[in-house]
């Protein structure tokens, strides 16, 4: 399969996740939830196990992560994160609570705008740029990718992480920054 059609397929898939979360938020749609669950629950479990959970604990945490997704569907902002990114943050928080038994203070949340639906063009661009970043990570030399994985799975301390990560984060950062500026502007 050539790269373009893979991209297109991924983008369609991902748009679908944004729509699924909206269906959960608006209609408590269990079928949409089942589709998300089938895709993400095994990945969340894999992430937790690579971060040091045993199978039993990873299974339990995965169910809690997915239940949190249901409960917090109204907080998902697709102009700032993909479904995968948002689920990562939920799984990370669950992992810290359950495995590290530490607290991770979070930044203040931003005030919410008045528009109930985000601009679809903004959503689409954010999803595309997130996927491009994912592809760039997949294309990194093995050694570099392993270091990044180690950082996220908790096998590197902050002083072992390089300040030059070699990750092309500029585009996605600028996109999220625009979404933040828009949100701030709407609040005025």
């Amino acid at each position: 399969m050539d790269v373009t059609s893979t991209n297109e397929r991924r983008e369609t898939e991902n748009e679908d996740w944004v729509a699924c979360i909206a269906l959960i938020r608006d209609d408590r749609d269990e079928q949409a939830f089942a589709r998300l669950f089938a895709h993400f629950a095994p990945r969340v479990k894999g992430f937790l196990m690579r971060s040091g959970s045993d199978t039993t604990q990873a299974e339990e945490c995965t169910q809690e992560v997915m239940a949190t997704l249901w409960q917090k569907a109204h907080l998902f902002d697709p102009t700032r994160a993909t479904a995968a990114t948002w689920i990562f943050t939920i799984a990370r928080n669950r992992k810290i609570d359950a495995l590290r038994r530490q607290k991770r203070p979070e930044p203040e949340d931003l005030p919410w705008g008045h528009e109930p639906e985000p601009d679809q063009a903004d959503v689409l661009v954010l999803q595309q740029e997130s996927h491009q970043l994912g592809e760039a990570i997949a294309a990194l030399p093995d050694k570099q990718r392993v270091l990044i994985e180690k950082a996220y799975f908790g096998d590197l301390s902050h002083s072992e992480i390089a300040d030059q990560t070699g990750l092309p984060l500029g585009t996605i950062k600028s996109r999220i920054r625009l979404a933040l500026d828009r949100l701030r502007h709407e609040m005025k």
Binding site: K45, T82, I137, I148, L169
Partner: peptide, 28 residues
Amino acid sequence: RARLGAFDTVGGALIEQGAAEDVASDSL
């Protein structure tokens, strides 16, 4: 905050690309 969002996106990509583990049959 935007840079942090970019690093969270990296975490999302690792979830998306990482190895999947079978969940329990009654998991859902």
